[in-house]
Lab assay of single mutants.
Amino acid sequence: DLSALRVEEVQNVINAMQKILECPICLELIKEPVSTKCDHIFCKFCMLKLLNQKKGPSQCPLCKNDITKRSLQESTRFSQLVEELLKIICAFQLDTGLEYANSYNFAKKENNSPEHLKDEVSIIQSMGYRNRAKRLLQSEPENPSLQETSLSVQLSNLGTVRTLRTKQRIQPQRTSVYIELGSDSSEDTVNKATYCSVGDQELLQITPQGTRDEISLDSAKKAACEFSETDVTNTEHHQPSNNDLNTTEKRAAERHPEKYQGSSVSNLHVEPCGTNTHASSLQHENSSLLLTKDRMNVEKAEF
């Protein structure tokens, strides 16, 4: 173990290094160091905050020279020094078990990766560091076993998940096959086929009936047209017969005018059967003409 005197000496050296690497504005270890034209180094955030307070150039807090945003430059070497100082402080805390008085939040800088452990060898070769390295080497064999167990647990979990997924996939297939086998029997399929065939026959029977009705309507229309044509021909046949009657009536009127007047009046009210309204109107006109002729003949006879 380190003596108290040596611990104090190391602590004083760390404090001196820390004062050199402090920012003059925030009085902390410089984060993202930036250098000016006057070779003074500050935190990048502190300098941008200072420049944004005034429009135009501002003055350096140490030498009062003008500073602009374009004049600022990043210093990589200074950032490396800060990183190495942080590593020294971490090693000091691990070796002594004491917390550094002016320690900052170094938890963000710590890294437990194997590459980081290899890099620590180049920091300080001390008894405390050696003991700590031995402890780490002793704890390393235990870690692979834990990793193997965790991997086995994960693989077993994956296997159970896969088996569950396969079961879920197989179950719908089985149910679907069961439904297909038990849903419709052979008799049901035959009945469905016969039902479809009967429906098709009914459709075939319905369509000819409609065509037959249309044919019957067409035949009825044709018969009505033929009947009207026969009526017209009958009226045409009746007209010459009426003319013959008129000639006979004229002759009778010349011989017996008194008797014919009474008979002509009675004939006005008689309509021949089986004739249309057109034929009756023609008869009325003929009878009126005959009456006028008879009157003329009677007057001539009187004179």
Rank of each mutant, 00 (worst) to 15 (best):
L2P: 13
S3N: 07
V7A: 10
V7R: 07
Q11S: 11
Q18E: 13
K19Y: 02
I20S: 08
L21N: 10
E22S: 04
P24L: 14
E28V: 09
E28D: 10
E28N: 10
V34A: 06
T36A: 00
H40L: 08
I41E: 01
I41A: 09
C43N: 15
F45H: 09
C46Q: 14
C46D: 13
C46W: 15
M47K: 10
M47H: 03
L48A: 08
L50C: 08
N52L: 11
K54D: 07
K54T: 06
K54H: 13
C60R: 15
K64S: 04
N65L: 03
I67R: 10
I67L: 08
K69V: 00
R70K: 08
E74S: 13
S79N: 04
V82N: 05
E83I: 13
E83T: 15
A91R: 15
Q93T: 01
Y100R: 15
A101E: 05
S103T: 09
F106S: 13
N112G: 01
S113M: 01
S122G: 03
I124R: 07
S126T: 05
S126M: 11
R130D: 01
N131K: 04
N131P: 04
L136P: 13
L136N: 14
L137P: 08
Q138P: 06
Q138V: 06
E140H: 10
P141V: 09
E142F: 04
E142L: 07
L146T: 05
Q147L: 02
E148D: 11
E148N: 09
S150K: 08
L151G: 12
N157P: 09
L158P: 14
L158D: 10
L158T: 09
L158Y: 08
R169S: 14
G182S: 14
S186T: 06
S186I: 03
N191R: 02
C196S: 05
S197L: 10
G199K: 05
Q201L: 09
L204F: 10
I206Q: 00
T207Y: 00
Q209V: 07
Q209L: 01
Q209T: 12
R212H: 15
D213R: 00
S216D: 11
A220C: 14
K222R: 06
K222D: 13
A224Q: 12
E226A: 02
E226L: 00
T230G: 11
D231M: 14
V232Y: 10
T233D: 09
Q239K: 05
D244E: 11
D244Q: 01
K250F: 06
R251C: 08
E254T: 07
P257R: 04
S263N: 14
S264R: 04
V265Q: 12
H269V: 10
E271R: 01
G274F: 12
N276P: 02
T277R: 15
K293W: 10
D294V: 06
A301N: 11
